[in-house]
Structure formats: C-alpha cells, structure tokens
Design a protein around this nucleic acid. Structure first.
Length: 275
DNA sequence: TCCCAGGGGTGGG
DNA sequence: CCCACCCATGGG
C-alpha cells in the first residue's frame, strides 16, 4: 500500500537538524527522508526546500509534532545579541523544539543519563522493538514507544537485557509509578512550570536535568533550560560563569536568554556539539 | 582484534 | 559535595 503524500509549508525549517539535535532519538534516515513514529502512528517525512512532504492524512498531526506553528522570527527577536548566541541562531535557526508525547520523552531521557546519542538511539529502538506496538509503513515495520504498563510488567533483568545498565532500575520504578497512576503525566501539563518540575522529579531517575528536558521537549515550556555538561561548559566558558553551580547557571540562563531560553539552549548546545 | 577509560545524570551517603 | 552505578563505544 502506498500512502499519498502532501506538501506543507515549512519556511526556514530544517527537518534533519530538528530530528538530530538531541531532543528525539528514534528517527531513521530512509531514502531522501526520515522514517519514525509519532505517538502510535508510523510516518515518513521528507524536506523539499521550504516545504515538507508528509502523509496526507497526517498533515495536522505532523505540524503540531514538529511545532511548525512556532513564530521563529518573534522567538529569534527575543534572543540576546551576544556573539555566541547570534552565531548559534544563524547556524541552527532551522531547529524546532518539537512536541513529544509525555511518557516517551520522560522515559527516553531517563535512559539518556551518561549516554551519547548513538547509545540512546539504540536503547530506544531495542525497547520499542521488544515491548512496543508494531506498526507498518509501506512494508517497513516500526515500533511505538512501549506503554508505561508494558514496561511496568517487566523485571529489572528484562530491562538490563536492553543495555540499560543501572538505568533499568529507575526506568522500571518510574514505569510502575506512571502505570499505577501515582504520577499523572497528563495532569502535570496543567501545572505551572516550577510545580511541574517538582512533580516530575518525584519519578525515579528524574532529577533536575531530565525534568527540564521533559518540560522543554514534551510540555511546551520553551523557557525551560536543561543544564547538562555541554551547556554548563558553554555558560562557564563563553559566558564567563566559571565558578557557578548548576542552580546559578539556571538562574543566569533564565535572565540572559529570556522567555525562549530553551530555544537558546538547544541552538547553543548543537553549536557546541558540532563545533 | 582486544582492552580500557570515561561519559549529555541521579540519588544516596 | 562526592562517588557508585552499568556498559556500548571508540581510541590506542
């Protein structure tokens, strides 16, 4: 079965950059485009200049997922005019902070602790393949991220067999907290950001950094700034915050980068990593 | 081919 | 504030 594709406008958008800048880890290159899953739906995406080729039936869903509605001119206008920020924004203005499903995002970043992109991607694919729902796209089999209940039913050894190491214990505990309703990820979306952060950090394996990743990449809090070693390096070096601890770095980032500090973070992060 | 250091973080001491 | 926790990865 061939799915009909349609073209949607995506001016200034960079699909490859958006899917590979360290916010989402399961999209695979396929021909001239990318194959992945949005929630439970398999999807092929291909950039053609300032347009995006997407499955016709999914145009709306794709636009929301990729945050094509973000007003980048307005966002860019709020970013500070220092040299580092402007260089990062010029090079990586095609990035969009996407809207990921809550659980998929929280769980994936729990498995990302102390890991580089290839390994996070590999863990994601293994979990999906073993415990996620299989869906097909033109003959290719893809897998949705496993439901909380699917992981909650496992033993720690099952997750260790997916190369999670010490993350097996925390992911399992968190899956059980979410599956049982002890923590309600959808409810967290209704909370103010500071309260949402406290609630997210109740989950096992979710500290300040992972919680901020979830707030930024799933909960649409574009002012959230995950302070990881890369951003810490940039703030301590480029921005001369040599002796600041993570809390001080977070405060500086909020003040200096403003309401879209999360965008600033992502562009600087990618700039540093691909430096 | 094999070995070993060290890592985009968290939580407990 | 410090260190243990696991293990795929990549450099030597």
């Amino acid at each position: 079965m061939t799915r009909s594709l349609c073209s949607i406008a995506a001016p200034g958008f960079d699909l490859g950059l958006t899917l590979n800048c360290g916010q989402v880890f399961h999209w695979r290159a396929q021909g001239a485009g990318w194959l992945g899953v949005i929630g439970e739906e398999p999807c092929y995406l291909e950039q053609q200049g300032d347009s995006l080729l997407v499955p016709a039936a999914m145009a709306e869903k794709v636009s929301t997922y990729l945050a094509l509605d973000h007003d980048m001119a307005a966002i860019r206008a709020t970013l500070p005019h220092d040299a580092a920020m402007q260089a990062a924004a010029a090079a990586f203005g095609g990035i969009r902070i996407i809207r990921q499903p809550f659980w998929e995002c929280v769980a994936t970043f729990i498995t990302s602790a102390q890991k580089a992109v290839p390994h996070i991607t590999q863990i994601s694919h293994t979990l999906r393949q073993r415990y996620g729902r299989a869906v097909t796209y033109e003959g290719a089999t893809l897998y949705a991220y496993p439901e909380p209940a699917a992981l909650a039913a496992l033993e720690e050894s099952d997750l260790r067999a997916c190369a999670l190491g010490y993350r097996a214990k925390t992911l399992l505990k968190t899956a059980r907290m979410v599956a049982s309703g002890e923590v309600d990820l959808a409810h967290i979306a209704t909370l103010p950001t500071d309260i949402a952060l406290v609630e997210l950090t109740r989950l096992s394996g979710v500290g300040e950094k992972v919680a901020n990743c979830a707030l930024l990449f799933a909960y649409e809090r574009l002012d959230a700034v995950p302070i990881d070693v890369w951003i810490a390096r940039i703030l301590r070096g480029t921005y001369r915050k040599t002796r600041s601890n993570p809390a001080q770095l977070k405060a500086f980032a909020a003040k200096h980068f403003g309401p879209y500090a999360g965008y600033a973070q992502q562009m600087l992060f990618h700039h540093a990593r691909t430096g």
